Computed example of a mutant assay.
Amino acid sequence: MENKKIKAGVVGATGYAGAELCRILCGHPGAELTAISSVSFEGQKLSDVYPAYFKMCDLVCETQEAVVERCDVIFAALPHGLSQELAAQCQTAGKAFIDLGADFRLEDEDVYREWYAGEFLDKGLHQKAVYGLPEFFREQIRGKRLIANPGCYTTAVPLALAPALEAGLADTQGIVADCKSGVTGAGRKTTQNTHYPELNEGFTAYKVAAHRHTPEMEQTLSRLSGTDIRLTFVPHLLPVNRGILATCYARLKPGATLAQLREAYRSRYDGEFFVRLLPEGRVADIRNVRYSNFCDLSLHVDERTGTLVAVSAIDNMVKGAAGQAVQNMNLAFGLDEAAGLKLFPPAF
C-alpha cells in the first residue's frame, strides 16, 4: 500500500473545473485519474470534448456510480445543489469526497437557505465537512474524508485580508472587496453576458452587493479574526479566460504602518509554498499566476486616507478550484501538499 497510487475520480469532468482537475491529476505523482463522469457527454472520451487532451487523457465518461465504485477519492465539479446526495453515497462507500461546489461551504443552514434557496439534506453529514482553505485550516483538513473546496473569490479575498484583521491592524467595519474574474468562472455553458460579442471589448460589474460568495468570505474572515465581519463585495467580469484579481480595501487602525502590515503578512504566510508576498513596489497581476496554484499578494497603503489596499491574484481554475482541490486531497491522504502542483506560471 505504501507505493500504491490513490485512485481519483472526477464527477462533472467536462466542465471547466472538472477538466482542469483531470489535467492536474494526469500529472500527479501520487494519484491516478481512474474514472470520470459527465451527464452531458456520457460514453464519450474526454479528449473528444477537449481535443487538447488527445493521447493525454482519453478516458471515457461513465456514470457517477462507476466513479464512486472504482475510486478512493471523488471530486465533484457540479453546480450547487447536486453534491449532497453524492457525498452521502461516498460516505456510505467509505470514499473521500471533495466538493468544488457550494453545498458544504456554509456552516449555517439558514444562511445557505437565504443565498442558495436550498436545505441541508443530512445535517450530520454537514457537521463532518471541513472547509478546505489549506493556508488557514490545514490541520483540520488532514485525514478528513469530506472537504468543502472554496471557490475563486472566496479564496482570493480572505488570503488578501486575513493577516491585517488577525493582527488588529485594520478596522473590521467598512471593508470593500472589489474583484475581477475571467469568464471561465461562469462555467462552460454559455449565457447572454458570456457570449463573445457581449463580453469582448466590455468590462462590467455584476451581482453588485448580492453575490452568493459574500457570506462565505464573511464566514472565513469572521472565524479567523474572532469578530463578526461584514463586507461589501462587488465582482466584475473581465474579457479574459482565466484569473481573479481581488483589490481589497480596509481602513487602518490609528498608527498602523506599511512596515507593520508587511511583517504581519510575512509572519502569517511564512513557509506557505503557494502564497507569494511580493516585494514592496510590485503589484499582483493575474498574468503571473496563470495555470498555477499560486496566490500573489501585494500590499499598499494610501497614507492620505489611512487605507490598506491589499491586492491578490490567483488563477480561478487552479488555486480557485481544481488546484486547491488537489492540495486538499494531498492533505487528506498524507501526501506532500504541493504534489502535482509545483509547475510555475509561464513567463508570457
Rank of each mutant, 00 (worst) to 15 (best):
319 K>F: 03
323 G>R: 07
300 H>Q: 08
292 S>L: 05
311 V>Y: 03
282 R>W: 04
279 P>T: 03
317 M>W: 09
316 N>S: 09
310 A>P: 00
277 L>D: 09
283 V>I: 12
284 A>L: 08
308 L>N: 06
301 V>H: 06
315 D>L: 01
307 T>P: 03
293 N>Y: 02
319 K>R: 15
284 A>Q: 03
297 L>M: 02
299 L>A: 07
310 A>L: 06
289 V>C: 03
280 E>K: 07
319 K>M: 14
283 V>T: 05
293 N>M: 04
318 V>L: 00
301 V>P: 00
317 M>F: 08
308 L>H: 11
277 L>Q: 07
289 V>L: 08
296 D>M: 12
282 R>P: 00
313 A>N: 10
314 I>H: 05
288 N>F: 04
291 Y>F: 13
284 A>F: 07
322 A>Q: 13
282 R>Q: 05
291 Y>T: 10
315 D>R: 13
299 L>G: 02
278 L>T: 03
318 V>K: 11
278 L>V: 04
309 V>R: 04
285 D>R: 09
292 S>G: 07
308 L>M: 06
301 V>D: 02
279 P>H: 01
293 N>C: 11
278 L>Q: 08
299 L>R: 00
279 P>M: 08
317 M>N: 15
288 N>Y: 07
316 N>K: 02
280 E>F: 04
303 E>A: 15
311 V>I: 15
306 G>P: 13
300 H>D: 12
312 S>E: 01
280 E>L: 11
290 R>G: 01
321 A>S: 15
289 V>I: 01
307 T>C: 13
281 G>R: 01
316 N>T: 10
291 Y>M: 05
294 F>T: 05
297 L>S: 01
300 H>A: 02
318 V>M: 06
311 V>E: 06
287 R>T: 06
317 M>E: 15
298 S>R: 10
279 P>E: 01
302 D>H: 06
314 I>W: 06
285 D>Y: 00
322 A>S: 13
323 G>Y: 05
308 L>F: 12
290 R>A: 05
282 R>C: 00
280 E>W: 00
281 G>L: 00
313 A>T: 03
280 E>V: 06
286 I>N: 04
285 D>A: 10
314 I>C: 09
277 L>K: 07
284 A>V: 12
313 A>E: 08
308 L>R: 08
288 N>Q: 10
312 S>R: 05
308 L>T: 08
311 V>K: 03
319 K>W: 01
321 A>R: 10
310 A>H: 10
311 V>W: 05
289 V>M: 12
286 I>Y: 02
284 A>Y: 13
